[in-house]
Amino acid sequence: GFAARSVKVMNETVALCQLSEGAVPRESATVQLSLDGLTFTDATARAVVDLRPHPEVHRINPSSALTFGGEVLVTGEGFYFSAALCRWGSDLSSHANILGPTKVVCPAPQVTDAHTAILELDVDGYGTIKAGIFTYVEPIILHGIRVRAGPIRGGTSVSVYATSFHPDIPVSCSFGESHVVPASIVSETETSCISPPVARPGMYHVSLVHASSGEDVSVSSGDDMRYEYYDDPTLTTIMPAGGSIKGGTHV
């Protein structure tokens, strides 16, 4: 066993025991009290307490989101609490979704402007736990695409133009609602992606999504962001079937 660092008698029936940080085991323990350090009270089932480590945050992902909000996964250990409040600076908060002892999801509330805030977990019994630095950024404004059509087998290089790209927001290209491919930043205003294969021809809206969360991070300035897929060409016949060895025949 181990002894408490200090004991404070609150009243005739309550004593407050403070444990040393390194002495707390991650398991249940039996509590016994002594007035002289030699004679202890009997161990009973009612004196068994469940000791848990202090919550510790390892990382948050993503560490940035658009001003219209999103979700942030907080990973760490010791998340044995049943409820927590996510605080985004001094003015904003949201209720955390506890996924287990190592994962908490914090819904990032919508804000009116881009700024940086400290994300903290407010937990009863543990106080405030710093999770990390979180950055709100403005949506990426799209101005158009170059190469507006290609075959349904995909493989066409498509350029997407925007006002600017955020260094804190890794992006992918989305064709329609479910076809997402990696994007390569070409310049401050251009990114490039390869069109994915699709099942049927038609018009597909092109947008940019967060490379990790898949959330939409772009808005259109009004330019046409549609990409047209067409059926792969099939060669059925050629006319004429022959010509002079000197060339010059139109086929």
Rank of each mutant, 00 (worst) to 15 (best):
A241S: 13
A23N: 12
R226Y: 09
S157L: 05
P233A: 11
V206D: 04
G202W: 13
L85Y: 02
I98R: 06
F165H: 01
V48N: 15
G242W: 11
I60F: 08
Y229W: 05
T44S: 04
T189A: 07
I118P: 07
S159P: 01
T75A: 10
Y161V: 03
S187I: 02
F2M: 13
P240D: 00
T116N: 11
G78R: 09
S218F: 11
S212L: 09
R59E: 03
F134E: 07
T112F: 15
L235F: 09
P151A: 05
P182V: 11
A43V: 06
R87S: 05
T75N: 09
I169W: 10
A183Y: 13
K130Y: 03
R148K: 07
P101S: 08
Y227K: 06
R52I: 12
S20G: 14
A183D: 14
G248F: 06
V7N: 10
T234W: 12
P182H: 03
V9R: 14
E77V: 00
V171R: 04
D232H: 07
S184E: 08
D231F: 14
T156H: 03
P151K: 13
H250L: 07
A131K: 01
S187W: 02
T237H: 01
L16Q: 14
F134M: 06
T41M: 00
T39F: 07
A114F: 04
N61K: 03
R87W: 04
A47V: 03
P197V: 15
H166D: 14
R148W: 10
P139G: 03
P139D: 05
K246S: 09
M10G: 04
H166F: 02
V24Y: 08
A29D: 07
A117F: 14
T156A: 12
D124N: 09
Y227G: 03
G248P: 01
Q110T: 15
Y230V: 05
V72K: 11
S164Y: 05
P196T: 04
K8W: 02
F68A: 09
L208C: 02
V147F: 00
I140H: 04
E71T: 15
G22Q: 12
S192V: 06
T234C: 13
A3C: 10
L35D: 10
G144E: 09
S28F: 14
D50C: 08
E12D: 11
S207Y: 06
L33H: 02
G247V: 02
S220Q: 10
L33F: 04
A149F: 10
Q110G: 12
V209Y: 10
G76Y: 00
R59K: 10
H205D: 06
T41I: 01
S213M: 06
K103S: 13
E138M: 08
V48C: 00
K130R: 14
V31G: 08
S172F: 00
A84H: 05
Y80Q: 13
E21D: 15
D232K: 11
S28M: 14
V147Q: 11
C17L: 12
Y161L: 03
A199Y: 00
S159L: 14
V9A: 12
A211K: 02
R148H: 04
D91Y: 00
R87L: 04
A47C: 05
G125H: 07
T191A: 15
G22F: 09
I152T: 12
T39G: 05
G247F: 02
G89V: 07
E215T: 15
H205A: 03
L38K: 15
